[in-house]
Design a protein around this nucleic acid. Structure first.
Length: 850
RNA sequence: GCCCCCAUAGCCCAACUGGCAGAGGCAGACGACUUAAAAUCGUCCAAGUCAGGGUUCGAAUCCCUGUGGGGGCACCA
């Protein structure tokens, strides 16, 4: 038995090993991708870049551990792997820290970046340090401005006045995506509505493509993210119907998903905060105008949270105006009610109370007429085809009276009271009504989306200035590319505190300019861009981060793009990913790139929790990464992250055992110390049993890594370590060639998870550094075949006997052997055999009866 | 309200996608080494797969129903 007492055996000193190899990596640069003559096939592996709000935390540690496994894996498989890192370094936290502590946001940001970079190096993340970028660097945000100007040129960047989300604490507008449950995503304060003129990107022009292209990502992105994106875009199909309004010149379009129920429309509702409502009220009586003004005031006082309370009563005011139903000429009273939204569809609806729950609630409250046009009891008629799932309702007079039941009839049935549609099913009636509307020129098939345009202006300092000059008469003058970058003025002397207008407005020298067209006084746009603009295309900037002549090199994009594997948290499932997909499509349309999706594959890691909940200082369950690294070593923390479970699952730090990972690594490392054979020994002379374990790992690890089953891969390495330990201590001994082969394989496999330990082992085994640039080995198929396998003999589903047979045994032979076993004979007894299923060589299943 | 995931030893998790429920780890028990402890090495322990039904020669795996947990969307016409 080998002697492992502390006195005479070397100790696994992870602190020393870490220090040693960091220096070696700095010198050898095994992760550089700068050689233009590299002929290896390429992989682009990208971790979501961090926001520098402090030092790295446990969440970063998990993400970077997993991303690194993938990057190192592909390198080991012979690929030229681009694995860059940068910082998403514009944004609110820098500014808030500046306000709170009176520091310069720039200094604060770059101090944090320096600290994070140091931690990443310690953490052994295999980044290409030559490609670092910071979005707060004018070298970077110049190209944000370029992108803005290109979008402006194409009509994809525009200004409009609209009711926007306003965070009263951060004193800035927010995108819809940044409002969660009616609260500001960042500070959790209740969001208010304000009418402001702001810059928008026209993402709605791309709604169909953003939705339809998700199909390409199926199987490569988590299905959860795909469904979140689908929900967010929220396409619904139906028809636009044009209604005439008495006393108004132009017709009013209304979107509906149920054009089949047009004959059941009994009133119309417009959004109180829409222009249409204001205009209709203008043409109404003074009484109506007063009532409406009061109602509008009440509506505008409501927060998003009030509005989303589904249980609240319907409210509204009658406008004393009338629309005309285009299919039957009926007069429909027009109401304003806040259950109709100004910015969805056309801000007006046709109300069909019999077949829409909201309309029914409203009609019941205000005593408006209800007319049933779909008879759900009639679907039993065999000549009527109903949609699957919409089962006919039992024939019962009461269901046909929604006013009495309070339940709208939303299911399928047979059309009644609907003139030319009578007798049709819902589906057929929808199609027929669209035809009729199109023939009459009063409507057409239409689609509407939940997705809104992307509001990109922010009234904040620490962001990309918008490269637009406002002339004295309100004209917009875009800067020209040669004038970029438009850099931020120094923060010194500026009031950064939230006050509802951009701090840049106070930088008089900066904001006041001459109108480039006529020399009259003009002002720069004082707002800055949403930082999601920065991150929407950064993956392209990594291809040539220091190029001053272009945002990115289309030739490099052709070489490397799109990203083969993107890794990051599910927190960005909608926002960032949707914007990046959008900008990618825009750049494709402009001809800069040849692909339409930025991220071919996506891995979402879970969160790191403590005692079942997210870590936070206020909760007092914060685990500090630096403490963990000090206590257990980098490798043990990384290994723990990979081993804890499937990567997309949350890790509860209370459930995992980094000390056990450290113990395992020491055990693996000790193997390398124990090996006594020389490098280059002929492995084929080694012990076959141990070689089998080694080669099974060689064969299986690639599939496990590519399937993101890192935890299983680690378990398999542990298995090999255990088998090797046993071979050394109580088997063939430390000099056997198979022991060296196994230990070298452990080092190679561990190099993905525990790079320091793996390097140390590799060197101890007599190899040149680095194991990080060594290649994975091919399994010998001969060693993957077992000499004999156990075949199970089942009778009526129960295991009755076992056979030890050759793996290539013939089915007929196996059947004969199985039927002859004592266990099978006993179980069959007098019963009659009805079927024998043979799955050679693993199982024989006998079915009997009697 | 609509849609989507998940449930396996005390705990974290595997199981070739229908073929003997266990790879690995934690915790636990015992032993070796030690004056002792730690470290190390070794041995052992444990569920019949949330519940009920169905398909099948055979179900953790496929299909229904329910329970429990997690997530997304929601007055979106």
């Amino acid at each position: 038995m080998a002697d492992h007492s502390a006195d005479d055996a070397p100790e696994y000193d992870i602190a020393r090993i870490q220090q040693k190899w960091q220096a070696v990596w700095d010198e050898l640069q095994p992760f550089s991708t700068s050689d233009p003559d590299d002929t290896r096939p390429r992989k682009y592996v990208l971790d979501m870049f961090p926001y520098p709000s402090g030092d790295l935390h446990m969440g970063h540690a998990e993400a970077y551990a997993l991303g690194d496994v993938i990057a190192r894996y592909w390198r080991q498989r012979g690929y030229n792997v681009l694995h860059p890192i940068g910082w998403d370094s514009f944004g609110l936290p820098a500014e808030n820290a500046a306000i709170k502590r009176g520091v310069d946001p720039l200094a604060w940001t770059y101090e944090n970046i320096a600290q994070q970079k140091k931690s990443m190096k310690l953490y052994a993340a295999s980044f290409d340090w030559d490609r670092v970028l910071h979005t707060s660097d004018p070298k970077y945000y110049k190209w944000n401005q370029w992108l803005f100007l290109k979008m402006y040129e194409k009509g994809l960047a525009y200004r409009k006045a609209s009711w926007v989300n306003w965070c009263p604490f951060d004193q800035t507008v927010l995108a819809n995506e940044q409002v969660v449950d009616g609260r500001c995503e960042r500070c959790d304060n209740i969001v208010e509505k304000k009418k402001l003129t702001q810059w928008y990107f026209k993402i709605t022009d791309y709604a169909d493509r953003l939705l339809d292209d998700l199909e390409q990502l199926e199987g490569h992105w988590p299905s959860k993210v795909l469904s979140m994106q689908r929900n967010w875009i929220g396409r619904s199909t139906g028809a636009d119907v044009e209604f005439e309004i008495e006393g108004r010149e132009d017709k009013v379009p209304v979107f509906t998903t149920r054009p089949d129920t047009l004959f059941g429309a009994t009133f119309m509702v417009v959004a109180p905060d829409s222009e249409l409502a204001a205009e209709l009220v203008d043409g109404s009586t003074p009484d109506v105008q007063a009532a409406f003004a009061e109602y509008l005031k009440a509506v505008q006082k409501e927060t998003e949270i009030d509005r989303q309370d589904a249980s609240r009563e319907k409210t509204g005011v009658f406008l004393d105006r009338y629309a005309v139903n285009p299919v039957n000429g009926e007069r429909l009273p027009i109401w304003a009610a806040d259950y109709v939204l100004a910015d969805y569809g056309h801000g007006a609806i046709m109300a069909v109370p019999a077949h829409d729950q909201r309309d029914l609630d409203f009609a019941r409250k205000f005593g408006l007429p209800v007319r049933v046009v779909v008879d759900p009891t009639a679907a039993a008629d065999p000549s009527i085809e109903t949609d699957a799932g919409d089962d006919p309702v039992a024939s019962d007079a009461t269901v046909l009276d929604p006013v009495a039941t309070g339940e709208a009839l939303v299911g399928d049935g047979r059309m009644i009271n609907s003139g030319p549609l009578d007798g049709l099913s819902k589906r057929d009636a929808i199609a027929r009504m669209i035809e009729l509307l199109e023939e009459a020129g009063t409507g057409r098939a239409a689609k509407t989306y939940r997705l809104r345009d992307w509001l990109i202006s922010r009234q904040r300092f620490w962001g990309t200035p918008i490269p637009i000059i406002h002339g004295a008469n309100g004209e917009l003058i875009p800067m020209t590319e040669d004038q970029l970058p438009l850099t931020l003025p120094p923060s010194e002397g500026l009031d950064l505190s939230p006050k509802g207008t951009s701090p840049l407005g106070g930088a008089t020298d900066w904001v006041s300019v001459e109108n480039p067209l006529d020399g009259t006084p003009a002002r720069r746009d004082p707002d800055t861009m949403d930082t999601f603009v920065d991150s929407s295309w950064y993956y392209l900037r990594f291809l040539n981060p220091n190029d001053d002549t272009q945002a990115f090199d289309p030739a490099e994009a052709e070489k490397w793009g799109p990203v083969d594997q993107y890794i990051g948290g599910v927190t960005h499932a909608i926002l960032h990913l949707l914007y990046a997909r959008f900008i990618t499509k825009v750049l494709f349309d402009m001809g800069y790139i040849t692909f339409t999706e930025p991220f071919t594959a996506l891995l979402n890691q879970g969160m790191v929790l403590m005692d079942g909940s997210a870590m936070s200082k206020s909760r007092g369950n914060l685990v500090r990464l630096s403490d963990q690294l000090d206590e257990h070593g980098v490798d043990a923390v990384r290994l723990t992250m990979a081993f804890a479970g499937p990567p997309e699952d949350d890790i509860d730090w209370a459930d995992v055992a980094p000390h056990a990972s450290a113990k395992f690594l020491a055990r693996a490392w000790r193997l390398a110390n124990d090996v006594t054979s020389e490098p280059g020994i002929d492995f084929s002379t080694g012990d076959v049993a141990l070689r089998r374990v080694t080669h099974r790992l060689l064969a299986d690890a690639p599939g496990l890594i590519e399937g993101f089953k890192f935890n299983v891969a680690v378990a398999r390495i542990m298995e090999l370590v255990n088998a090797t330990r046993k071979a050394i201590d109580s088997g063939v001994g430390p000099a056997d060639a198979a022991v060296r082969e196994a230990t070298e394989t452990v080092s190679l496999a561990l190099s993905l998870f525990a790079p320091y330990t793996a390097e140390e082992m590799w060197e101890q085994l007599g190899h040149q550094p680095t194991v990080a640039s060594a290649l994975w080995r091919t399994a010998d198929p001969a060693l993957l075949v077992e000499e004999s396998v156990t075949c199970v003999v089942q009778v009526d589903g129960k295991v009755r006997d076992r056979l030890t047979v050759s793996p290539d045994i013939a089915a007929a032979e196996l059947e004969r052997l199985a039927l002859d076993t004592g266990g099978a004979k006993r179980a069959i007894g007098e019963r009659q055999i009805v079927n024998v299923i043979v799955r050679a060589p693993k199982i024989v299943s006998i079915a009997t009866k009697g």
